[in-house]
Design a protein around this nucleic acid. Sequence first.
RNA 1: GGGGGUGCGCCGGAGUUGGAGAGCCGGGCUAGACUGUAAAUCUAGUGUGUAAUGCUGAAUAGGUUCGAUUCCUAUCACCCCCA
Length: 307
Amino acid sequence: MANVRQEKKYLIVISGPTAVGKTSLTFKLSKHFECPVISADSRQVYKEMNIGTAKPSAQEISASMMKLVDHISIQDEYNAGIFEKEADAIIRNIFEDNQFCILSGGTGLYIKAVCEGLNTFPDVPKHIIAELTADLNKYGIQTLRDELKEKDPSYHEIVDTNNPHRLIRALSIYRHTGKAFSSFLNGNKKKHEYKIIKIVLERDREELYDIINQRVLDMIDEGLTKEVRALYPHRSLKALQTVGYKELFQHFDGILSLEEAINEIQKNTRRYAKRQLTWLRKYNDGRRFHPENHDEIISFIQNNIEA
RNA sequence: GGGGGUGCGCCGGAGUUGGAGAGCCGGGCUAGACUGUAAAUCUAGUGUGUAAUGCUGAAUAGGUUCGAUUCCUAUCACCCCCA
C-alpha cells in the first residue's frame, strides 16, 4: 500500500442554498470516501443553537467526524478570518491520514475564505468597533463616509457607502493601525497542496421554497420555540441575529403572533436562500448537480481524481 | 327585483375630482453587491419594450369637451340597504 502521505489530496467542497439537501449528500459522500467533514456554516458553529440552524444530530456529527460544528459559544467572538484559520489547520491535519476531506456548508464567504483565502488583517480591539458604532448612531453615516474618504479614498471609491458594516469595518482597521483598509488588500489567491473539487447543489426555485416552508414547520414541531426562548436573554448577541431566532424573539415581545412569526421565518429563509443563490452564481466555478443525483456526483468526483 | 356605494400597478393604503401619472407610502417578489457581523448588512428594478423626451394606461364600451381618472350613458364585478 502506498504511503498515504504522498498521495494527491482532494478537498471536496459542497455548497448550495439552505435546505437544498447538502447535509444528506455530505453524509453519503463521507461514507463513500471514508473521510471527515468540515462544516462551513456560520451558525452551526454555536453549541447553543441547534434546531433553528438545521444542525445534524449528534450521531451524524460523530459518525462523519464533522468538524467546526458546536465548538464555540454564542458568547464567543467568531468571524470568517477565525474560520479560515481553524479550517486550514483541520484540513492539514485530516490530510495527514486521509486522501479526502469534505468541506460542506451554505456560508459562501467561509468557503471562499478556505478556497481562495482572505487577506491578513490585524485583529481590531472591540472598543474601536464600539466607538465607530457609537459615532454612527450619534453623528450619522455621512460622518463615517467622510472619514473614509479622507483616510482611504481608494476604498471609498469602490465600497458601498450606504452599508454601515462595510464602513465600520474599513474604518476600524484604519483607526487601529493608522493604515488604510485597502492597503491590506491584494488579490493574491491562496495556493494549496491539495486539489479542490467543487460541487454546487441546485433545485427548482419553487421546489426549494416548498422544502423551506415545510422545514420551518418541522422545526417548530421539533421545539424551536423552546430553544429560542431559552436564548432570549442573549438576544442582542451577534450570533442570534439569525433567521428563526430573531422572529421568535419578536413573538416573545408581543410584536408578532406565533403564526406571523412562522410566516416571517419562512419568508426570511427564502430570502436567505435567494442571496445564497446570488453568491453562488457569481462564483460559478462549481459543477452543478441536483442533490439527489448521488451516483452522478460520486462519479464526477472519481473522474476528477488523478489516477 | 328596487335603491345606494366602490372599481387604476402583484398586494394593501393615501391622494387627485376637468388641465395626466405609468405618480406617492408600505408590503411582496425579482435581480444585484459583499475580504472578519455573511442566516448579517446594503443597492436596484417591478404596465409594455425597438429601452425612449417611445407606446398603452385610472373596471369595460361609448359620449360630452380644446382637454376626462374626474362629467354623462350603458355594461360588468364587488359591497351595503330594502324587498
